[in-house]
């Protein structure tokens, strides 16, 4: 391991969890006073520890994006608190430290790249933080390598594919040396190849560079490798568990409009008909083994 070891932080400096959310509630303001405000989040509790890969899943409007906006200090909760390494996101003075600590990658690959050249885009966050020129150049080289985009240093964003643009966005966040990255549906607008590229990058950051990841998505299959999955529906957390624990709750997931890996669903259907199969089958190979034992 070389200097990339610097990314591995199994203990945050303050000894705090990276993300801590307590009794968080939020309703979007309504223009019309007669209208009932829609509760986007009600009483959310969540902790993400250093080095973890936590997935948040839920359909559109389940509150998962609202949560990410609160974590980044973009909106202020009505009640409850969110802390990033012990810094309360309501604390206006800490806002830049919070955003530097928990970096954020958004859904639309086009609308988060600022510069017409890849390398200056990656440098943007560091420039804002006042990093000296030679340090920026070094870091740009390093983070482009981490996301496998070194060959595109001088490329122009509009010539890249969606997956490549998202990897540039990730590099731009990595360059700010965050302790955690919040991914707000980064794959929703990508084709299967692009999704594969981005998921590979996210997993690599978590596994090989110790990056804490909070991944928000509505694709179940992207969370097979997560440490923990949080299922949200109607602004509430309805289940928390390991991927196998969550996926085996086929009936609950279907009820709230989420997909289940096909093999898990097939196992569920066969079990209903009396087959003695494990509940937590995820892959084709596990299914073949279970059926041909």
């Amino acid at each position: 391991m070389n200097e990339q070891t610097a990314y591995i932080k199994h203990q945050s400096p303050s000894g705090e969890p990276i993300i801590r959310v307590e009794n968080l509630s939020y309703a979007y303001p309504v223009e019309d006073e007669n209208q009932e405000p829609k509760q986007a989040l009600s009483d959310i509790n969540l902790t993400v520890n250093p080095g973890e890969f936590v997935g948040i899943i839920g359909h559109n409007g389940s509150g998962k994006s609202t949560l990410s906006k609160i974590l980044n200090g973009i909106i202020v909760p009505d009640s409850g608190d969110a802390w990033i390494e012990g810094m309360n996101t309501k604390d206006a003075e800490k806002i830049w430290d919070i955003r530097k600590t928990a970096g954020m990658v958004f859904q639309n690959p086009d609308n988060q790249l600022v510069s017409s050249v890849v390398e200056t885009d990656v440098a943007f966050g560091m420039e804002n933080l006042g990093v000296p020129s030679d340090k920026i150049k070094e870091k740009v080289t390093e983070v482009l390598d981490m996301v496998g985009m070194s060959d595109y240093r001088k490329a122009r964003p509009h010539q890249l594919s969606g997956g490549q643009k998202q990897r540039i966005a990730i590099a731009g966040i990595l360059a700010m040396k965050p302790d955690c990255i919040i991914f707000d549906e980064p794959t929703a607008m990508l084709d299967p190849n692009g999704r594969g590229e981005v998921m590979k990058t996210i997993l690599d950051l978590n596994r090989n560079h110790g990056m804490t990841v909070l991944h928000i998505t509505h694709y179940m299959s992207e969370l097979v490798n997560a440490d923990r999955i949080v299922v949200m529906d109607n602004g509430k957390i309805v289940a928390v568990g390991t991927p196998r624990e969550i996926f085996s709750k086929v009936a609950m997931l279907k009820k709230i409009g989420l997909d289940v890996p096909q093999m898990t669903e097939l196992a569920y259907l066969l079990r209903q008909d009396g087959y003695d199969l494990p509940q937590d089958i995820l892959t084709i190979r596990e299914m073949v083994e279970a059926l041909c034992h």
């Binding site: 097939l266 259907l269 066969l270 008909d273 009396g274 003695d276 059926l291």
Partner: peptide
Amino acid sequence: TVEDARDEIERVLGREHHV
């Protein structure tokens, strides 16, 4: 489809096969 797969597995392996 998952439903077709279930029917075919039950046809070939038998419904009581694994019970």
